[in-house]
Design a protein around this nucleic acid. Structure first.
Lengths: 168, 168
DNA sequence: CATTTTAGTTTTATAATAGGACTATATTTA
DNA sequence: TAAATATAGTCCTATTATAAAACTAAAATG
């Protein structure tokens, strides 16, 4: 069967996954953040099969995450504004891996403020006033486009949710 | 061929992907944040094949992202502390999809501070002093465990990187 | 003009997923 | 007590996606 898409889910996270959720895709984007621009750079850096890389780059260009330009002698892929906006995601993924699956020798990479060299804040969830919020200190409210995940299949949430969808 | 693992990459993001990078996995975690706890809840909510769900739950339990408890009549899966720590990631994914792949009718879900009901800050990268940093205002410094992506295959980064790995 | 570089495409094998049918156990209902 | 239902899976098959290697074509270089 064809890999099932997430189009049946009315969910922003699922939408994001439809762009960056395939095997290798986030690593290509990571490399793009690190300045990699060319087909063979990505290929050698990741050890990805060439046909798969070709497929992923095409999809990322179609999704306007990367922009392709054909220079003299070679092509380049660079992050668009939409691609650059994936930075918080890229960093959150790195921070989580850093914390829960660390390298025995210590940190692999440290992200710092370019201005003063100080480490950036670790990824978190922040209130409007800047307080860092714990997982249970937030909740989700339905917006104008809200439906259940699958509008056709109601699912009861009987147990108190960490993020709760009840009104108010 | 077997799906290639990312173990050859010395990269925290790749480590994270090895846990949450498979098809469906982040959606299961999303559902867990929303209070879903049981096999059939996940299955109906997502429309995922039962064998695939079974596989993913096993892996998430093995990775200590979910914890399984067998109650009377049914089992439950709930997020561990390690799983709860994926919240910034989950929210960053939702924010990005919300912004770049919006529903025509408006927002699907809005995350708010449980205390005062105000929207949380959109995902971002913050300096130690709380300033929001733009993509090019940070850089990455090598830590004690740093190597190239693939220690065996050096790749030149000739072009100025948004995140730059040069010293200093 | 031959070689190398670059960016792919093509081909083949194997593994992963989707979907449906099936199973086993416990609980509820008639 | 027997039958029905609920729950949490497993098993099977068809198809797709990925990996790996070989191949292609155009441009740049020596």
């Amino acid at each position: 069967m064809k890999l099932k898409s997430f189009d049946h889910l009315n969910c922003s996270l699922a939408q994001t996954l439809s762009v960056i959720g395939e095997h290798w895709t986030m690593l290509i984007i990571r490399d793009a953040f690190f300045g990699f621009r060319r087909f063979d750079q990505f290929q050698k850096s990741l050890g990805i099969a060439r046909n798969v890389l070709s497929d992923r780059l095409k999809k990322l260009v179609a999704a306007e995450v990367l922009e392709k330009s054909d220079g003299p002698g070679h092509s380049e892929y660079r992050l668009t504004e939409k691609g650059l906006a994936l930075q918080p995601l890229m960093i959150a993924m790195t921070h989580w891996g850093d914390k829960y699956m660390p390298h025995p020798k210590g940190q692999r990479l440290k992200f710092v403020d370019r201005r003063d060299g100080k480490p950036i804040k670790t990824s978190g969830v922040y209130a409007a006033d800047g307080r860092r919020l714990k997982p249970k200190e937030i909740k989700a409210k339905p917006g104008p486009a809200f439906t259940q995940n699958r509008p056709d299949v109601p699912v009861n949430i009987a147990i108190p949710a960490i993020i709760d969808l009840t009104q108010g």
